[in-house]
Simulated scan of single mutants.
Amino acid sequence: MGTNFIGLDTAKTEELASSLNELLANYQIFYMNVRGYHWNIKGENFFELHAKFEELYDDLLLKIDEIAERVLTLGHRPAHAYSTYIELSSVPERKDVADGKEAVGHIVDSFAKLIGKQRNLLALAGEADDEGTVALMSDYISQQEKTVWMYRSYLGQ
């Protein structure tokens, strides 16, 4: 069993990097969807949602960078092409969404997919003794659980 330059099992870091790249793909598609919601939103809640979507895509962009840098830290290359993102993502690409409730519903669905993937990564990272990825996923999950609760409350769920 070989270890990489940060002392983690190389076979396990390869699996972690692959899972992180899949997560990265989902974040990238989600990010572009939210940009589209921000640009195209119409209706009575325009001002509130326009600002909320900007806050969300700014946060997603930070996480995209953190995930890519974690892949690099593990000694691998982050995915960096939209063709790869579309291929790997389970978050579907959304086009021309202008209705606020529809957009928020898609956001809740996307977060559900991300949180599930992050829980799987959390377990995988724990098995690999990868505290850096564990901490990242744990932070994302706890933050996003609250965010989902708030968006679901907006929807009256």
Rank of each mutant, 00 (worst) to 15 (best):
L16G: 03
Q157M: 12
S138W: 05
E22C: 02
Q28D: 03
N4C: 04
S110R: 05
Y37M: 09
A98G: 08
R152P: 02
L60I: 11
H80C: 06
L121C: 03
I141V: 15
L121P: 05
A112R: 13
T13L: 03
E87R: 04
E54Y: 04
R35N: 06
I67K: 07
Q143P: 01
L16T: 03
E93V: 12
N33C: 08
S153W: 00
L155W: 07
L155H: 09
K101F: 10
L124G: 02
G75T: 06
A68T: 11
Y151I: 00
D130P: 08
R77G: 13
N40P: 03
S142L: 14
E102W: 00
T13R: 03
T133A: 02
L60C: 01
L122E: 10
L136R: 05
L61P: 00
T73I: 13
H80A: 15
K95W: 11
L56W: 04
A128M: 02
A135P: 03
E15S: 10
S18I: 00
L88H: 13
K117P: 01
G43M: 07
E66D: 15
Y27P: 02
V134D: 00
A17H: 08
G116P: 04
Y57I: 09
A135R: 12
E22N: 14
S142M: 15
G7A: 01
M137I: 03
E69T: 08
L121I: 11
M32H: 07
G116S: 13
K42Q: 14
F47Y: 15
V104F: 12
W149Q: 09
E87V: 01
E131A: 12
G100W: 06
I107P: 00
L49C: 09
E54D: 13
L155G: 10
I86H: 10
I29T: 06
V71W: 13
S90T: 15
E44Y: 10
D139L: 11
A135D: 15
I67A: 14
K42T: 15
A123D: 14
L62M: 06
L72G: 09
M150Q: 11
T73E: 14
L24Q: 11
E127S: 04
D99F: 03
R94W: 05
T3C: 00
D129L: 08
V108D: 11
E102H: 10
A103C: 07
D99P: 07
Y57W: 10
D9I: 02
W39N: 08
D99C: 13
A11Y: 00
R94T: 04
E66Y: 05
E44L: 15
L49T: 10
